[in-house]
Design a protein around this nucleic acid. Structure first.
Length: 788
DNA sequence: CATGGTCGTGAC
DNA sequence: GTCACGAC
């Protein structure tokens, strides 16, 4: 792919943490707010500020108290801080929710942070260009869109329609793609808002650096296009330090050495000079980026490569005794463990390495950081005290000089620890033979032979596992599979049902999710006409549904997608009459959050509510993808231009056809869960007893009763913030009161799933007791060994 | 004491 | 494998 002719997008959520808080707590909407963490000292550190608060002069470098001073009516929701350490999982989950929407538009998506993602939409644009006439494109299809170097986006569209006759530098082919890109991005942002309720801004350019750069020039809830020929105009006044990678020491160094301030000035240095003054690589990079050239590809990565947590211990809070170190390593390790359990369920992977980092304050006052890695051995159980113990061991090993003296005061370190961190990485996917493949083998035994082929498995392990399968009763295998699938559906659909087919989804190289694998297995199973008691029953259920209700198939009308109207908050009039340079300078000023801009945002939500609808084109399902797995089990349905739903005989709910198998699994899972609950009653009591706060549960005596099968919609619809909520002591989420017992059920089921997952992923023999025995099989010293 | 907790990357 | 750096 020609790196210079890509269309790269950066999607950046507007003051994301604030939006998350506003979504969770409607009371906050329309008010100035800032999210703080660790509020005890000076009202806490501000880590996000919404635009109403920015308009009042609140910024991220203030403490909560300063913000109150500037803006007395400001609301300051704070990051949950259980056990003394900030927990940002709320926002992490929200970020995933958003990224899942983005992923529907292109698989070439790179999550850059909790609230940012790069998308390469070159291919989707190319496809769209084949089906549309660009002369039909007008700015009303792309509200809140700006083109750098143009007073209004209409002017840019005119240039495209007129082949840019007024500019020699005009790259017509590229501009066409930018225009279509702007259309697609506005559809993407509309989908994000529709499905999550979150607003975002976007930058659209031909590489990542520039997309990132221009994304910040019009915010919030706006998108900015950068035509190639506007790069020089932009650079003429753009401070070097605004460019990604140049915002730190290196950028300052460059400015100092070259005695320059702007990107334009950087253009006057030859590549050789730059390579001499800096190094070869950096010099070349500077030379190119000064000309708007950046070849770094958008990498297809959804999941983080590492999972870590850390904490500072500033000043007097520095850790001095081994007990406190042990405590904090345990807390950090526990959090890692929890996040890893979730990660294993969602992403089917396990880390192979742990890194323990810390900084100590030397006697001379300086601080030094160190980190040590440990590679997990296959015997290590990634739970409980493994992290704590291993991290402690590693840390003690690395602080030899700080070890306690033999004899007296042996619980004190010589040097205070100012920072502690544990992170895990080098993930490996769980091999299929551990779960899915085993089950496939089991159910398809005697037919297709290639599935039994295993390449990377020891003979011993294979025998052991085959033995497991044979000795296990079928029910339990079914349960594990269905439950697992159920949870995956829970995770994938947590708070959004796709209400529409997404236009031009460029999923020709769809990443294979584990859910997909399982579905394909399931279809395979159904096709085989095999009847075991449980799954056979399920098959009948589906068949019955189709037979008796085919005539009830609904065809939903094409839904319309609400896009923000270009009201007073839009481009056009606000900047009309300004020169191009004024426009650019104004844009640059927006990096500092222009208050004039912000003040117009105050009524944004209200205005958006009343905005008019804009039709979004829908995917015409004529692609080769029409033979999706679900299609093969529903041959009676032939038309495919619309979203088809069937009414489930179990719950009476209209379910999108493509989701129906998943939906059926859900019913089976519900039933199985009832059985599991009985089977694991004892275990659950142990687990629940461990939890400190059971107040919320006591308010709901109905925890273990689940007579009526709930509608699928209760699990999958967005949470409605207007209903009364209860704070769940398990996860800290606020849950609608009427759904609370279901929610608790979910936790119980999730625990069971985790146990099952552990049984499968650990090499230990299967044990019918769920009780997790934390007998470390590795030659790992207990922490206590370090004390006398 | 005072953005802090997370991430990714590249040099060595 | 460690470390500093950059960014959010």
């Amino acid at each position: 792919m020609d790196q210079e002719n890509r269309i790269v997008v950066l999607i950046d959520m507007d003051c994301f943490y604030c939006q998350v808080e506003e979504k969770l707590n409607p009371e906050l909407r329309g008010k100035p707010i800032a999210v703080v963490q660790y509020n005890p000292w000076k009202g806490g550190g501000i880590i996000a500020v919404n635009y109403l608060a920015r308009a009042r002069g609140v910024n991220r470098h203030m403490r909560g108290d300063d913000a109150k001073e500037k803006c007395p009516e400001i609301q300051l929701p704070s990051v949950p801080c259980p056990k003394g350490k900030a927990d940002i999982s709320k926002y992490r989950d929200a970020g995933i929710e958003v990224a899942k929407v983005l992923q529907k538009f292109t698989t070439l998506l790179e999550r850059a942070s909790i609230d940012e993602a790069y998308l390469d939409i070159t291919i989707p644009i190319q496809k769209r260009l084949e089906t549309i006439n660009i002369h039909t494109l007008a700015s009303n299809l792309m509200p809140n869109t700006f083109a750098l170097g143009y007073d209004s986006f209409d002017d840019f569209i005119s240039d495209v329609h007129n082949c840019g006759s007024d500019s020699i530098d005009f790259d017509f082919e590229h501009a066409k793609k930018l225009l279509v890109g702007a259309l697609i991005v506005s559809e993407i942002r509309a989908a994000v808002y529709e499905e999550t309720g979150y607003r975002c801004s976007a930058g659209i350019a031909h590489n990542k650096i520039l997309a990132k750069l221009v994304c910040g020039m019009n915010k919030p809830n706006k998108q900015t296009v950068l035509p190639k020929h506007s790069v020089n105009m932009l650079y003429r006044t753009l401070p070097v330090t605004k460019v990604k990678h140049l915002g730190g020491k290196f950028g300052s160094h460059v400015c100092e050495v070259l005695k320059i301030k702007t990107m334009g000035e950087l253009q006057s240095f030859s590549e050789k000079v730059l390579q001499t003054k800096f190094d070869e690589k950096n010099g070349a990079w500077l030379y190119n980026i000064a000309r708007g050239i950046d070849t770094e590809p958008v990498q297809a990565r959804f999941n983080p490569k590492s999972i870590g947590c850390c904490k500072n211990f500033k000043g007097k809070a520095a850790l001095l005794d081994l007990d406190s170190i042990k405590k904090w390593l345990k807390d950090l390790g526990d959090e890692i463990e929890n996040r890893l359990e979730k990660d294993a369920i969602e992403n089917n992977r396990t880390p192979k390495q742990m890194v323990v980092s810390f900084t100590v304050q030397l006697p001379d006052g300086r601080e030094t950081s160190s980190s040590k890695s440990y590679n997990f051995s296959p015997e290590d159980e990634l739970c409980g005290e493994l992290f704590t113990n291993k991290a402690f061991e590693v840390l003690i090993d690395s602080t030899e000089g700080c070890k306690p003296k033999e004899g007296e005061s042996n619980r004190k370190l010589r040097a205070p620890i100012k920072f502690l961190g544990i992170s895990v990485g080098k993930f490996e996917e769980h091999t299929e033979n551990k779960k899915t493949k085993k089950i496939i083998d089991y159910f398809s035994a005697g037919s297709s032979s290639e599935v039994t082929q295993r390449t990377n498995e020891t003979a011993k392990g294979k025998e052991e596992k085959d033995q497991d399968i044979k000795t296990k009763n079928k029910n339990s295998v079914d349960k594990e599979y269905v439950l697992q699938k159920f949870f995956q559906a829970q995770v994938n659909n947590k708070s959004n049902i796709p209400k529409q087919e997404i236009i031009e989804s460029s999923n020709e190289n769809v990443l294979e999710s584990s859910l997909d694998k399982q579905e394909s297995f399931f279809v395979k199973f159904l096709k085989k006409d095999q009847s075991t008691d449980k799954l056979g029953g399920k098959k009948e259920m589906i068949g019955e549904c189709h037979e008796t209700q085919t005539n009830k198939i609904n065809r939903s009308i094409s839904p319309v997608c609400n896009i923000e109207d270009r009201g007073d908050d839009s481009n056009g009039t606000a900047h009309s009459g300004s020169t191009i340079n004024d426009e650019i300078n104004k844009s640059i000023a927006l990096f500092e959050d222009d208050p004039d801009e912000i003040s117009r945002v105050s009524n944004m939500r209200e205005l958006l509510k009343t905005s008019h609808d804009v039709n979004i084109r829908h995917k015409v399902n004529s692609s080769p993808k029409s033979e999706a797995p679900s299609r093969t089990v529903t041959p009676e349905v032939t038309e495919s231009n619309h979203i088809e739903t069937v009414e489930c005989s179990e719950c009476g709910k209209a379910v999108p056809l493509e989701k129906f198998i998943e939906h059926s699994d859900y019913h089976v899972a519900l039933k199985l869960r009832e059985e599991e609950r009985e089977e694991f009653r004892k275990t659950r009591e142990i687990i629940v007893a461990k939890k400190p706060n059971v107040d919320a549960k006591n308010k709901n005596p109905q925890v273990t009763k689940n007579e009526a099968v709930p509608s699928i919609s209760k699990f999958f619809t967005k949470s409605d913030n207007t209903v009364p909520k209860i704070m769940c002591s398990e996860c800290g989420d606020k849950v609608a009161k009427e759904k609370f017992s279901e929610h608790l059920d979910f936790h119980e089921a999730q625990k069971l799933s985790r146990e099952l997952n552990k049984k499968q992923t650990s090499s230990a023999s299967l044990n019918n007791s769920v009780k997790r025995k934390k007998v470390s099989t590795s030659p790992l010293k207990s922490i206590d060994m370090f004390f006398r």
